[in-house]
């Protein structure tokens, strides 16, 4: 049971990441591979505040959001100029640079040592050290973010985003300042990723830079692509699938000396098959 609760918590965290990244990749059509950077910003903000100051978990979430927005604004200003492949390659760069900062700004982040002893949230008299309570908390955050994302996509703002995706030139003709829209959605998405990071840090009680490298961004992107582009439920489905798949494969009974590598093979083959037969993802509404 504990195992299933644990998987459900991980799922909630990655569903938040998937939903938020879908706003950028699916709805606006910008292939961002830097989501783990903002995920890390949230995690590090919470970790540092909870271990070094008296700030509580919920205040640290707010501060994490603020830091993520500030940083995503700086990065987004640069990124808003790019399109397509170049946008993706640019985000590669930012993820690597922010990862290098997590790893090398030792006075603040403790570098390769990581930060242990992060406390679990407390609210009124509810103890979130209990995993079930933590799951409820994570699901509440997921619900909140899902509805904010839904509100955004159904709003006129969201329709402009989709128009940018379909034909940016045309919408510029109508007088829309598209870099402003791209920047705004990028920052909103980053803020949501920071929330997931805060949850992650507090749940594991330990973080180190290795959780926020480029490959993690690729994993989150895979959630969105697999589940479904421009479909919020798709991102949730993708998170469910990619969090559960490796765990199910633990039980398949590959010979122990190749089991772990076989999982990678299966993972790779599934990505290829999805691209071949369902490039919009399981329930997506937009093809890359």
């Amino acid at each position: 049971m504990e195992y299933l609760i644990h998987l459900a918590i991980l799922f909630s965290i990655y569903a938040i990441l998937g939903v938020s990244l879908n706003l950028v990749v699916g709805y606006t059509g910008l292939l961002s591979v830097t989501h783990a950077a903002f995920y890390g910003i949230g995690a590090y903000t919470t970790a540092i505040l909870l271990t070094k100051t008296g700030v509580g978990f919920f205040s640290s979430v707010i501060l994490g959001i603020i830091v993520a927005i500030a940083l995503s604004f700086l990065i987004g200003v640069v990124l808003s100029k790019f399109k397509g492949d170049y946008y993706a390659i640019g985000t590669f760069g930012f993820n690597t640079i922010i990862f290098a900062i997590f790893l090398n700004w030792q006075n603040l982040t403790m570098g390769p040592f990581g930060i242990p002893g992060i406390s679990k949230p407390e609210l009124l008299s509810i103890n979130f050290a209990n995993n079930f309570n933590f799951l409820v908390l994570a699901l509440i955050f997921l619900g909140l973010i899902y509805f904010i994302a839904r509100f955004i996509t159904k709003s006129p703002f969201g329709r402009v985003l989709k128009a940018i995706r379909e034909d940016e030139k045309a919408i510029v003709v109508f007088g829309y300042n598209t870099p402003y829209f791209k920047l705004a959605i990028f920052s909103i998405s980053a803020a949501m990723a920071a929330v997931a990071g805060s949850l992650f840090a507090s749940y594991l009680t330990f973080i180190d830079p290795s959780s926020f490298r480029l490959m993690e961004s690729a994993f989150i992107l895979a959630i969105v692509i697999l589940g479904g582009l421009a479909n919020l439920r798709g991102a949730i489905l993708g998170a469910l699938f990619l969090i559960l798949l490796p765990e199910i494969l633990r039980f398949v009974g590959f010979p122990p000396d190749i089991a772990a590598q076989m999982r990678q093979v299966v993972y790779g083959v599934i990505l290829i098959l999805v691209m071949l037969y369902r490039p919009q993802g399981l329930i997506g509404e937009y093809k890359l």
Binding site: D85, Y267, G268, I272, M275, P279, L288
Partner: peptide, 15 residues
Amino acid sequence: SNMVLLVASLGAMTA
């Protein structure tokens, strides 16, 4: 599209 090919190549790389 290019992106689909990129993701498929990521799968090929992993496998």
